[in-house]
Amino acid sequence: MEYCADPSTLEGLRWLACYLTTPKHQLFYLSFLTVFALLAITAPVVMIMGFGGAIARKSQIAPLRWLGTLYTSMVRGVPDIIFFLFVPIALDQLVEYARHKIKCPHITDPVYRGSEFIVCEAAKMPLSDSAAWVHNTWSFALAVIAFSLVFGAFAANTIFGALNAVPHSQLETARAFGLTEKQTFWRIHVPQMWTYALPGLSNLWMILIKATPLLFLLGIEDIVYWARELGGSKTGYFQYPHPDWRLWYFLALLVFYLLLTWLSGKIFNRLTSRYSLDHSSNPTKPLLKPIEAGR
């Protein structure tokens, strides 16, 4: 006889063990991977966008400089939530509109009809008959783009500021030694920049972790969605009826996020002390460490 065969006859710990391992709970556990996937994909993209944005803002080419400034100041001046709501919808419609124009040129009916947005079947993104995971991946990808756009601009600001904070004498010395502009930038400027950027970037990472529940706002079934869904009171329509347990589920999320930020804090502390220019705490550390680390 199966351990969890008839939930209505179970009691105590056995009931709880069966309850916590229902397929629905397994979806909850799996959704933690969604959060990690978001962090793992977004973080490097944010760094690339941040670096690109900062270099654009420092560029000698005026239009590029304007673009960089426009990007960072626009994102900085608009509440995150507006971006998170706007970007996925706008991108989704833009992609479908473009596909509609390419795949169904013979349809002359307008795409925007009153309140409706109608593209031909072949232009749907993803297609109507695509599997559920394709639909989920698509909306997740849109969310990743929104996160990267917003946090990329913050990172660009931090890196831009850090690039400016590197003492001018360092760069002048490099030039005096005969290094080209490119060499000066990559061998002297960027390696020294990290010292000034790290506190800001570690702060950004913490904010990114804490912003992951915004996935829920985008209709993605993340840990917050499942915590609310599983925690809500369950009547006899369910195999495992229980009263309102949202408190416990949200408590679990609280512990999860605390652990994650605590661990991140520890890692960043080590990084900061490694790249720190402050040698009073560690006199044995060679003075030019930041430059070496950059190679």
């Binding site: 939930p7 229902t22 397929p23 629905k24 397994q26 979806l27 869904e229 809500g232 009547t235 329509y237 369910f238 195999q239 495992y240």
Partner: peptide
Amino acid sequence: GAYPPFNFVNDSGEIDG
């Protein structure tokens, strides 16, 4: 998926009701 008995997500994680 949150309005029993019309529609809800059952313990198997599927839409039911």
